[in-house]
């Protein structure tokens, strides 16, 4: 049990930098599309790692299923809203930033 607990803790700690870099990307990247890249990808990986870590530490299979259901829903929701925002930006003719 102790090994599982420590392994879970390892994955939770591994997930935190992804959230932080998602925020850093949101602040540093130059245009809306690149910011969407940072937000969608980094945050989903961070959440996935934290959920995986918590699943290792949980004591019932029902809890594991519940955690993965949450992850799946967040995954679907964030990729769909990411696409919607990007498409709307394209329709508004926002020019993507490109390297000079």
């Amino acid at each position: 049990m102790d090994i599982l607990h420590n392994a879970g803790m390892f994955f939770i700690i591994l997930g935190l930098p992804f959230f932080l870099s998602g925020t850093v990307g949101l602040l540093r990247f130059p245009d809306i599309f690149t910011r969407l890249h940072a937000l969608t990808k980094a945050d989903n990986v961070g959440l996935g790692l934290i959920i995986f870590g918590l699943a290792l530490q949980s004591d019932s299979w029902l809890m594991v299923a519940r955690l993965f259901l949450i992850w799946l829903l967040v995954l679907i929701a964030s990729s769909a809203s990411c696409h919607l925002v990007a498409r709307c930006a394209m329709q508004k003719k926002i020019q993507p930033w490109s390297r000079p």
Partner: peptide, 12 residues
């Protein structure tokens, strides 16, 4: 998707 997270982290 894990690779994509690492990729974004490296760039950011």
């Amino acid at each position: 998707s894990t690779l994509s997270g690492i990729d974004v982290m490296r760039r950011a």
